[in-house]
Write a protein that binds this DNA or RNA. Structure first.
Length: 116
DNA sequence: CCGCTGACTCGCG
DNA sequence: ACGCGAGCCAGCG
């Protein structure tokens, strides 16, 4: 297992996040099979290879953008807002409403399969 | 090879 | 509610 394939698995999960939804670093790590390696997810996204990966839909567990303004935080926020995500006055995204739920119920799961 | 840093998270007190 | 420490691991000097 080299770092390349590891990051690819992470990117694979990130690609599945639908527009208008977000996921946390820890969530991505867990889904990719790397529980507790949220930090590596952030690292992988920092070195994101191409632009066909919706990196902007990944935020921290507090529902906030982890980047500084200069680092791209402004860009990330703008991208999310353009997808319909609404921030609270405190710049927080209500996870209860926007967090991506890969599988909710078996029937939804089937529907999801068709989409993939 | 060693130590520090970082787009993080979780559990405890 | 909030701070702190530990767990994780790739890059870089």
């Amino acid at each position: 297992m080299n770092k390349q394939s590891k990051w690819e698995q992470i990117y694979q999960v990130v690609k599945q996040i639908p527009p208008g939804k977000v996921a946390t670093y820890g969530q991505i790590a867990t889904l990719a099979g790397y529980y507790r390696q949220a930090r590596q997810v952030g690292y992988a996204l920092h070195a994101v290879p191409s632009d066909d990966i919706p990196w902007h839909r990944v935020i921290n567990a507090q529902g906030k953008i982890s980047l500084n303004f200069e680092m791209g935080g402004a860009v990330q926020r703008k991208l999310l807002e353009s997808e319909g995500v609404v921030f609270t006055p405190a710049s927080v995204i209500p996870l209860r409403q926007y967090q991506w739920q890969p599988v909710i119920d078996p029937r939804e799961d089937q529907h999801q399969e068709e989409l993939n």
